[in-house]
Design a protein around this nucleic acid. Sequence first.
DNA 1: CGAACAGGTTACTCATGGGTATATTGATTG
DNA 2: CAATCAATATACCCATGAGTAACCTGTTCG
Lengths: 207, 207
Amino acid sequence: METDAPASPFRTREQKAEERSAKRRALLIAAVRMFNERGYHATLLEDVAASLGVSKPTIYHYLGNKERVLLECIALGIEQYHRAIDEAREAPGSGLDRLRHFLRAYARANMDDFGRCVIRTGPEPLSPEGRQGLRERKRRIDAAMRGFIEEGIADGSIVPTDSKLLAFTLAGALNWPARWHVPGGELSAEELASRMVDMLTIGLAPR
Amino acid sequence: METDAPASPFRTREQKAEERSAKRRALLIAAVRMFNERGYHATLLEDVAASLGVSKPTIYHYLGNKERVLLECIALGIEQYHRAIDEAREAPGSGLDRLRHFLRAYARANMDDFGRCVIRTGPEPLSPEGRQGLRERKRRIDAAMRGFIEEGIADGSIVPTDSKLLAFTLAGALNWPARWHVPGGELSAEELASRMVDMLTIGLAPR
DNA sequence: CGAACAGGTTACTCATGGGTATATTGATTG
DNA sequence: CAATCAATATACCCATGAGTAACCTGTTCG
């Protein structure tokens, strides 16, 4: 029990703001989990609200309409990919090393609640504008990945190939766990990511 | 113009049956294309019917309710995978050769209308029974794939690894084109399948 | 103190779209 | 020829679920 301070029941302004954003966040997480489990269409905002013991209009109060909820989940997912890019850009070593670093982070992102949502819930449920924005942002991630690949080709750590096709191939393989990986599985996301990246970068035939 | 026979306007029983199954097939194809383009939920059976110039009840007449339509599309998709398995089982060469053969056929299946549907439309829209059946049938495909891998490990053409994880990784990579490949693209499905399989089986680092 | 506001509720509206009842027409068959 | 069936249409029913209106309550602030 935390009893350092007298723990007054009267909250300060900051505590209020914090509380609000904690509630927002909790609703968002409840929503994304249900999206991932049941699919976007099969998820009722009413059920999301009920899972936290509140009523549907509360969601509208904190998050806006259903598409806005989804868009925010997607935005949070995309953020993870951006972190993966930044992280890999700063990594030392050859282009292949940086690519591997990126791929591991990318794979981990795909097993996070929000990352999974980006993959599982395709662009279909979004409005044309939403789809547009999503495509745009995905394109940027793809470009970054291709950058790592080309860097690797340039420094000789990766065999010359069609970088676009390679990027799609690698991304596809690492996207798929968003469909089958269950968080509490035998392998941790970390472990899984590492092993998959090894398989992809090393190849199958004995040397 | 075909005018070999007097071409009577009165159809025989077989012609009638053929005509009927041709209509069924046409409806199914129209449906699967729209499922793939717009997503299952966003597809109205009314629109599917309209795309062939008929009305909604005609679909119910030929195909039954919406889930039945989807289930049949999925069944046709799954058939392609089975053909891929049979084809690869009869292929000559090492385990790796057979695996590569299977992977190419699998990738091609994923770019066919019905195959794409299996991937794009996950199990979410199905009823519990439908989901159950789908999982079952997918499991069998996965088992076959693992068979090829283990065979390759046994005969030394594939380096020893976790065959389950490898199967997921490879399948994931080859599933992904179902999301981005557009039929009339620069690369044919055939070509694309070959290149991706090469990338996956050979690895990235120079030897 | 009273006005305004934040957080929440209950109880509605209403478009949508899956599915069906029923009618029509033309061919098939006893 | 009557009965039936296949193939289609029109016009409807009705559950569902997103979104909203109106209301309540406690807190904050001029």
